[in-house]
Write a protein that binds this DNA or RNA. Structure first.
Length: 767
DNA sequence: GTGTCAGTTCGAAACACTCA
DNA sequence: TGAGTGTTTCGAACTGACAC
């Protein structure tokens, strides 16, 4: 079999022309909230010519195992025949496993054969999923998981960080990026935070968050603060909203359609099948007004809940960006005017200087690397939405080191070969390369500039939605070969009927012009989640200049000396560089060359060799062996079976939290705790710590009044009481681990107060 | 009562790595 | 070289909430 060589990759030297817009979007979150999220913001400002809406047609399904080489071969053969009929160059997109098989087949065919002309593309959507997994791997154990768990469910976060829940992952990463940028802006620029619970519609924010009138802002802030205290706490809603441009992928959309192979014919012909549109995009003229009215009502309700967290500033550069944003929004400025504004370079320069000052801080470096990875996500999505071919290639090239450092070797190999092949197209297929440069490499399901999506995502969205929605194959038709053929071949006729019915009834299908990120409920949720994330990061600042070591920002666990994830880009670049000239078929990736993350298991040194130890696994194995080899287990337990007792310590080395309520339940259940014996009791001993949670502390009360309140409560409730508070010396004590867990590894500030000090409280406990 | 959807859990396949 | 282990990726099945 012919080998596949990793050729030296030429540097693209692509200059991103619109980085200013990404910067504006991330900064504006801090200065003016709520605003549309990145995707909504981009759709709002991007208006340009584009190749038009694409049409999709289904080809017959091949009834074979998708991974079967002969199935892939048949697909390629069919593709070549169809392309010959249209006199077009065959282009096909696969996800990674099938891409590699198709590549092997094509590379082993003679160059003059029909297969030699096939342009094989690696699915961008799957590439993005893998990159999300790479981010999750690199940031494992850093505290990102705990950060995201403040706004998402734990299992949802696991899927987000493993690259499965794409829509949520993107939203989550973009929110975290904005919260981190907000933190940096506070440090670099002179800002003052205002947090308001605004009960007015969105335009109201535009009026009061003007940075040149600070007094007015503070005054309105005080009013709003009192309103905010009455705000209800929200449930942890899950992200069920989807991006109309295909940013999302539901579980269904993530399913591989490996049983089906399609050719996407990308032209400007009108869409012929109504099944080609997603449910959320289909809005009839009659339906639209009703939905808009409902949305308006809902918006008003949601806007009342909006929590606004912004900063006021008098910094000239930040004010310049605000003006540019207003200009774009009001359409008084064009994008070309904005990107020529030097204010962005000045802001970037100041932020870069600040980042350079953190060069010795490992934790800060890791989180700055995270920001770089999220920027790549922005670029990758933007390249697809706008059909920017060079940006797409440049971003894939920048992703390679992160794939390498995180051990996503299959995608590293495939993406490397894909990039190499696409660059070669400049000379081998100049006509196709030119059409890709004009934005023909993406598919648009709606007639908008900011609506391009990856071809593999298109296949999944269109096919899966058609299969599973009303009239689809999963609605009682059966899935046999005959039924599939009937369904596919009849869909053009059904589309004709559908079109005729639309003309007859006068009901037309159209897509909403407004992006979902522009809706007030979405903005409200974003603002709420941003506040939650910002609060978390304020308490656990990853950019502390005096924090030189690498540690988890949530639990404070410090990394070993062998953890090098803060230099993962250099690690990855080294691996990518070493690939040049190697044979892709025989090259072996070594795990020891990858970046070592914070989540790497603890290791012990045996004969000068580091061995990773999972205490839980070690304990289980040893007890299993002991049970089989020794009749008396107590003999075995005389010896140390793991470096820490797993029953008492978790994998990060922190002592497990005590569950007092379970102990209390056990006592009440197993023992006689009746109250008869209390009748003769003359002394009530009360736990002072527990007592603290019994009473709610009134607003603006002093500590003296609170003490008086507790005293009165105890005297009224109990005769002859004795209140006991537990106290610990400054020397090492059994409470130390609890203190470490509670302070999250960050030393708290000293608070000085006396009887007349007014208590500023948060949710019933002193701050 | 039914259908849909998000969330969760579990398992299998494929592949890389390690070790005897 | 083969067996065992670990990781990644993917899919199926189930559950509960919600809308109609």
């Amino acid at each position: 079999m012919q080998g596949i060589q990793f050729n030296e990759l030429d540097e693209l030297k692509y200059i991103d022309q619109h980085w200013q817009l990404d910067m504006m979007s991330s900064i504006i979150w801090s200065l003016r909230s709520p605003v549309p999220a990145w995707s909504g913001f981009m759709q709002m400002i991007h208006k340009s010519s584009h190749p038009g809406k694409s049409s999709m047609i289904f080809f017959p399904m091949i009834d074979m195992e998708p991974g079967d080489m002969s199935c892939v071969y048949s697909t390629l053969k069919f593709l070549c025949n169809e392309a010959r009929k249209y006199s077009k160059c065959p282009i096909i997109t696969f996800d990674q496993p099938l891409y590699w098989k198709a590549l092997l087949i094509i590379r082993n065919e003679p160059e003059d054969a029909s297969f030699g002309k096939i342009i094989l593309r690696l699915g961008g959507f799957h590439l993005e999923m893998s990159f999300l997994g790479a981010i999750g791997h690199i940031m494992a154990g850093s505290g990102l998981e705990e950060l995201l768990e403040t706004v998402y469910a734990p299992n949802a976060v696991k899927h987000m960080l493993s690259g499965k829940a794409v829509s949520r992952a993107l939203r989550g990463h973009f929110l975290v990026e904005s919260a981190l940028n907000s933190l940096i802006i506070q440090k670099v620029f002179t800002c003052e935070e205002i947090v308001t619970g605004d009960a007015h519609p969105l335009p109201r924010h535009e009026k009061h968050v003007r940075c040149d009138n600070e007094e007015e802002i503070v005054a309105s802030d005080n009013d709003a603060r009192s309103r905010n205290e009455k705000q209800p706490t929200y449930d942890n809603e899950e992200d069920i909203l989807t991006d109309d441009a295909g940013l999302c992928a539901t579980n269904e959309e993530q399913n591989d359609d490996e049983n089906t192979h399609e050719i996407l014919v990308d032209d400007a012909r009108p869409c012929t099948t109504d099944e080609e549109q997603t449910d959320e995009e289909i809005l009839t003229d009659e339906v639209v007004p009703r939905i808009r009215n409902d949305e308006q009502t809902n918006e008003n309700k949601e806007v009342e809940k909006i929590i606004d967290r912004s900063f006021v500033t008098k910094d000239a550069d930040l004010l310049g960006i605000l003006e540019a944003f207003d200009g774009l929004k009001d359409k008084t400025l064009k994008i070309s005017d904005v990107i020529e504004d030097k204010v962005f370079e000045r802001v970037q320069c100041r932020i870069s200087d600040y980042k350079d000052s953190l060069v010795d801080c490992k934790t800060a470096n890791l989180w700055l690397t995270y920001l770089e990875m999220v920027v790549l996500l922005h670029r990758f999505v933007r390249a697809e939405r706008t059909g920017d071919w060079l940006l797409h290639l440049d971003t894939v090239q920048r992703m390679l080191p992160y794939f390498a450092a995180s051990g996503h070797n299959l995608y590293l190999k495939s993406a490397y070969i894909y990039l190499s092949d696409m660059l070669k197209m400049r000379t081998s297929h100049p006509d196709i390369y030119a059409s890709f440069l004009s934005g023909q490499h993406v598919v648009r399901r709606t007639d908008r500039y900011w609506a391009g999506i990856w071809t593999d995502l298109t296949i999944e969205q269109v096919l899966m939605k058609s299969l599973k929605s009303s009239g689809g194959l999963t609605r009682g038709r059966g899935m046999s070969e005959f039924q599939r053929a009937v369904w596919i071949l009849s869909s053009p006729v059904c589309a004709e009927f559908s079109l005729a019915m639309q003309n007859l009834t006068g009901i037309q299908y159209s897509s909403s012009e407004q992006h979902k990120d522009s809706y007030a409920p979405r903005q409200a949720r974003n603002a709420k989640d941003m506040k939650t994330l910002s609060d978390f990061l304020q308490e656990r600042d990853p950019f502390q200049a005096d924090m030189k070591e690498l540690r988890n920002i949530d639990n404070g666990v410090t990394a070993d000396a062998n953890v090098n994830v803060d230099h993962c880009l250099e690690v990855g670049q080294k691996i990518v560089k070493s690939l040049a000239g190697q044979d892709a078929m025989t090259h072996v990736f070594k795990r020891k060359h990858q970046a070592t993350t914070l989540a790497t298991k603890t290791s012990v040194k045996v004969d000068d060799e580091l061995i990773s130890v999972d205490p839980q696994l070690m304990f289980q194995r040893l007890t299993t062996i002991a049970r089989e080899t020794s009749p008396d287990l107590s003999e075995i337990f005389k010896y140390e079976l793991s470096n820490v007792p797993p029953a008492l310590f978790d994998n990060s080395g922190l002592a497990r939290e005590a569950h007092k309520s379970q102990l209390a339940d056990a006592i009440w259940t197993d023992r006689d705790c009746g109250t008869d014996s209390l009748q003769s009791c003359r002394l009530f001993v009360l736990d002072g710590g527990s007592l603290l949670h019994r009473l709610s502390w009134p607003q603006k009360s002093t500590f003296g009044e609170i003490v008086q309140m507790y005293t009165q409560y105890v005297l009224n409730k109990f005769t002859n009481p004795c209140v006991v508070f537990d106290g610990y010396e400054s020397a090492p004590s059994t409470k130390d681990m609890t203190h470490v867990r509670r302070c999250k590894g960050v030393e708290s500030r000293k608070t000085v107060f006396n009887e007349s000090t007014v208590c500023i409280k948060e949710r019933g406990i002193p701050r």
